[in-house]
Simulated assay, not measured.
Amino acid sequence: MGWYGTILIGRPGEERLPAYPGVRQAFGSQFRVLHDLDEGWQRVDVYPFYRERPRFTAGVQQLAAATDAPALAAYVAESSCAHVEARTPKGAAISIHLPNRHDACSYRHREGQPGPLVPRLAVEAFEAWADEAGRSPDPATLAAVVGGDWDESPFMEDRVLALIAALGFPPGREIPPLIDPDDEAFAAYRRLAFLADVRAATRISIVEHGETPGAEWDLSPREHDSLRFSEILEASMYGGARSRAQLLAECERLAAR
């Protein structure tokens, strides 16, 4: 199975990108591998909980407006394709599907598959985005990525990283998380939260299809507790919502209920 997730770039000022207001609501609440790209720019991989419904395109627009800096997000589906949205405060907008071609994508994109762009116009749009970001783009690599000639790797996440590099960003350095979400001390609640997340997502899906979920899809108080704990745990990774000691105390409190 390939990689699913969103690669997000923004310039959040003094904040860490995962903790920037509105980012979790727009793209999802699980963050991995945060990179400092210098000059205030950051890149992070984002994954929504199953129960979350990200607002991908609107989120990019809102992030660019809130930070007064260009923003870009690429949702990758099973390492095979990507939906890329890029915005700038001055109004530049790019919506492109990679591979950039006319045939329909076999993967489900919640906000629909962007239509194909003329490669030359796509390159010019990305160059304008990079210029507003104060970067020095590489037109040849941009043309290879959006024109279908880039064949360095079969994985779409690598193509997105090549696009980001072609926009003028360095690989950056990884910013270590403040909390390890895979800490064995939290394993029991993470397992319960995973199962509760799947059940909550199924209930939401039933409602979205116009049906009424049965009582068997109602979550128990313990399941609700596990979901809240998982949200606090993820928010603590880069934003400092709780220390490890506070998270352990919360685990003990929930276990005693």
Results as ranks from 00 to 15, higher is better:
27 F>T: 02
71 A>T: 12
104 A>N: 13
138 D>L: 02
224 H>N: 11
184 E>P: 04
112 G>D: 04
155 F>N: 07
14 E>P: 10
246 Q>L: 09
136 S>I: 06
75 Y>D: 14
49 F>I: 01
137 P>M: 07
199 R>N: 09
241 A>M: 12
217 W>G: 00
157 E>F: 05
10 G>K: 09
181 P>K: 07
46 V>R: 03
254 L>H: 02
60 V>K: 11
188 A>R: 14
86 A>Q: 04
248 L>I: 14
55 R>F: 05
68 D>R: 15
157 E>I: 00
25 Q>R: 14
95 S>G: 10
252 E>C: 01
24 R>I: 06
191 R>W: 10
214 G>Q: 11
43 R>V: 03
181 P>M: 07
37 L>W: 05
55 R>V: 04
218 D>K: 09
16 R>T: 11
106 S>Y: 10
162 A>D: 07
179 I>Y: 03
116 P>Q: 09
145 V>G: 03
139 P>V: 11
54 P>K: 06
3 W>A: 06
116 P>Y: 05
226 S>A: 15
229 F>E: 02
19 A>G: 11
100 N>Q: 13
30 Q>E: 14
251 C>K: 02
224 H>P: 01
194 F>K: 07
14 E>L: 11
31 F>A: 12
198 V>P: 00
87 R>T: 05
52 E>K: 11
142 L>E: 01
238 Y>C: 00
146 V>D: 04
162 A>H: 05
135 R>N: 06
180 D>A: 14
168 G>I: 06
199 R>I: 05
120 R>F: 00
139 P>K: 06
89 P>V: 04
101 R>N: 12
228 R>T: 06
108 R>C: 11
123 V>D: 02
80 S>N: 14
57 T>Q: 15
247 L>Y: 08
135 R>V: 09
220 S>E: 12
191 R>E: 14
153 S>P: 01
100 N>R: 11
1 M>Y: 02
149 D>W: 00
118 V>M: 12
111 E>D: 13
236 S>I: 02
98 L>Q: 04
134 G>W: 09
127 E>R: 13
221 P>W: 08
